[in-house]
Structures are given as structure tokens and as C-alpha cells.
């Protein structure tokens, strides 16, 4: 099958304008989403995952955020400067599933009202036709009694059901790209499993490209074809899913893999320390303070990609140039 690039992000930089200062939040992020494939984006809280998603949708307010770089959808640059045009693309070509389904619904509107509102934003249909589309979509997501669900208020449904509704709303226009920002974080594990299964089925059915944001390695391992690890605003490592789980290269990724709970009696390995504060980000590698194999020149490092072999790219001085570093030396 020919892989088709759906969304191509190049050199995305986002900075927060705060009291005449520019605080960079997302730095030089590049990736591309392919048809029917899932790109997993992992990282700790505050590393820039959500901001990356919002900037892709053009939802960052211009007087507070500065966004640079290019985002192409099917080869065309996204019209971020035109509010009206980008609004029409949101929800139709690029859809997003939010983190917390329960608070993502207006408590005063029924599920059906939410649904028809979005449908009628993008399609010129009557209320009744919109209702039919909605019911069909809900059926596809294995919600029983969709007609009843349509008439219910958000608080009458469980988190899992609401998340399904939200996914249904996101997918009815068959978007090219679906951004899922931690779609299962607030759900319990069994529901999480079902939702992920349904997402996978829908991805195969609609051939949607997905950007799956999560800090749950299990979710990423289950869903993603390719994984990008973010730290301090940079994508520090990016590789196909299997590759990154078997052969993590960046010290941060390795630390992340080690800190997964396992069925052993050993103490859990933790990554010591916290991600650097937004305000304090300086030159050099943002992971310097927590890195076990940090060197002096790490502080001068310009965070360029250092090693890129077989689709596995990493930004770390350990892999710079000819210098061979033994993997075990710093693990």
C-alpha cells in the first residue's frame, strides 16, 4: 500500500509572549502523519504536547502566542491567518478529541444538540438529517440505543459513553487527521481498552491519520505505528514504535521505559527531578540536569538531530559524529 502523507509539520516553533518576553514552549518540532497510521506523542506534563495539538488547529490566540513553522495538509499550507477558513477546516478536515469528555460537553445541551450543532456547522442539512447522521455515527461506535442517548444530557452518560460520542462527533466528516489529546486518561482501564479498540477500527475504516497524545506508554505501545518522544519542547527521539520500545536511544526515553511498572519485586525506577520550568529554559539540552550521562558540552548543544538511521532520529550528543558510545555506559 502506498503511504500517503496527510499532514506534514515542519519546524514548528511556538512561543508564549509574556511581558515582552518570548518563552519558547515548542521548539523545532517536525513530523508527518500518514494515512491510516498513528503517530504517538509522549512526554511528561508540560513538555509541549497539548500546545502542539492546539497550534496545529490554529487555536492559539495570536496576541499571546507566536507560532512559526509550516503545517501542510495534503500538500497545502494551512490558512492560519484566515480565521474563517481555518474554522471551517477544524472539525471537518482536522478533528480533535479532547482529554476530559465529561467537561467537554455543555451541561445545558443534550448530546443530540451538540451533535447536530457540529454537523450543521459543516454540512448544509436539516435538523432531521443531521439527527440521522448522528444516530448512524453513534451506532458505529457501538453505543446502544442511540436515539435515547441523543436526548440525554451529558451528566446522564458515563465518561466512556461521552468519549464515544465525542469521537463520533469528531469523525462524522471523515477528517483527514484526528488529533486525540490523551483520549483515555480520565477513563478506567477497561473502558480505555474498548475506546482504543474502537479508535483503531475507525482508523482502519476511514483511513484517518491519527496523532495520539498520551503519557501512558501502554496506550502508545498498543496503538502507535510511530512514536515521538517530547521533552522540554523538543522531539528528542522519533522512531517506529517497535524500534523505540526495543532500542530506545535518548537517555530520557530510556529513563521513561525503565520507569514503567512491571511484575517484579524490584523497586520502580524513577526519573529523578522535574522537567525544567518554562521560564528557565536556556541554551543546550533541556534534559541536562536530569541526565545520567550529561557532559559539559551538552550545555552548548544546539539540539540538532544527531543520529538518524533507518527512520530513527534522536537529538543527543551521545550519538553525535563518529563517537561510539557504549549503551551500557550510562544506563
Amino acid at each position: 500500500m502506498i503511504k500517503e502523507k496527510v499532514m506534514d509539520v515542519e519546524g514548528l516553533c511556538v512561543s508564549l509572549l509574556h511581558r515582552q518576553r518570548e518563552i519558547s514552549v515548542v521548539r523545532d518540532v517536525s513530523f508527518c502523519l500518514e494515512e491510516g497510521k498513528v503517530l504517538g506523542l509522549i512526554g511528561e506534563s508540560g513538555c509541549g504536547k497539548s500546545i502542539t495539538c492546539l497550534s496545529l488547529l490554529g487555536l492559539l490566540e495570536k496576541d499571546r502566542w507566536k507560532v512559526e513553522g509550516s503545517v501542510r495538509l495534503k500538500g497545502k499550507e494551512l490558512p492560519y491567518l484566515n480565521r474563517e477558513k481555518i474554522r471551517r477546516l477544524r472539525g471537518s478536515s482536522v478533528a480533535m478529541v479532547m482529554q476530559n469528555p465529561i467537561s467537554s460537553f455543555n451541561p445545558l445541551l443534550t448530546v443530540g444538540q451538540h451533535f447536530t450543532e457540529t454537523i450543521r456547522t459543516h454540512k448544509e442539512v436539516t435538523r432531521r438529517e443531521a439527527g440521522q447522521i448522528a444516530v448512524e455515527m453513534l451506532l458505529k461506535l457501538n453505543l446502544s440505543e442511540p436515539e435515547k442517548v441523543m436526548g440525554q444530557y451529558p451528566f446522564q452518560l458515563s465518561g466512556g459513553m461521552l468519549q464515544r460520542v465525542m469521537i463520533a462527533i469528531a469523525l462524522f466528516m471523515c477528517p483527514h487527521v484526528l488529533i486525540a489529546d490523551e483520549p483515555t486518561t480520565s477513563l478506567d482501564v477497561t473502558v480505555q481498552y474498548q475506546i482504543l479498540k474502537e479508535l483503531a477500527e475507525l482508523r482502519d475504516h476511514y483511513r484517518t491519520a491519527m496523532l495520539l497524545v498520551s503519557h501512558d506508554l501502554g496506550v502508545i505501545a498498543q496503538m502507535a505505528d510511530e512514536v515521538a518522544v517530547m521533552y522540554g519542547g523538543y522531539v528528542v527521539e522519533q522512531a517506529p514504535s517497535r524500534e523505540i520500545f526495543c532500542n530506545p536511544m535518548h537517555p530520557y526515553t530510556r529513563g521513561l521505559m525503565k520507569s514503567r511498572p512491571a511484575f517484579t519485586k524490584d523497586r520502580l525506577n524513577v526519573l529523578e527531578g522535574y522537567p525544567p520550568s518554562l521560564m528557565k529554559r536556556s541554551r543546550g539540552c533541556p534534559f541536562y540536569e536530569r541526565c545520567r550521562c550529561a557532559r559539559k558540552d551538552c550545555l552548548e548543544f544546539d539540539m540538532k538531530e544527531t543520529g538518524a538511521t533507518g527512520g530513527h532520529s534522536v537529538r543527543c550528543l551521545l550519538y553525535a559524529g563518529e563517537e561510539e558510545v557504549k549503551m551500557d555506559a550510562c544506563s
Binding site: L57, R90, M96, M98, H122
Partner: peptide, 26 residues
């Protein structure tokens, strides 16, 4: 700042609709 307003924005809902259907009733 409530999430459902950003959810509506994400779904491409127009500003007018957000004001009249989501903000004003609340």
C-alpha cells in the same frame, strides 16, 4: 475557559454560535 467551549471551538463552531448556545445560557 471551560472545556466545552474549547471543545466547540475545536469542532469548528462559529463564534456567534458559541456565544449564543454555550456562553449566554450559562
Amino acid at each position: 475557559e471551560r472545556t466545552f467551549v474549547s471543545a466547540a471551538k475545536v469542532a469548528g463552531t462559529s463564534d456567534m454560535k458559541i456565544i449564543f448556545r454555550h456562553i449566554l445560557p450559562n
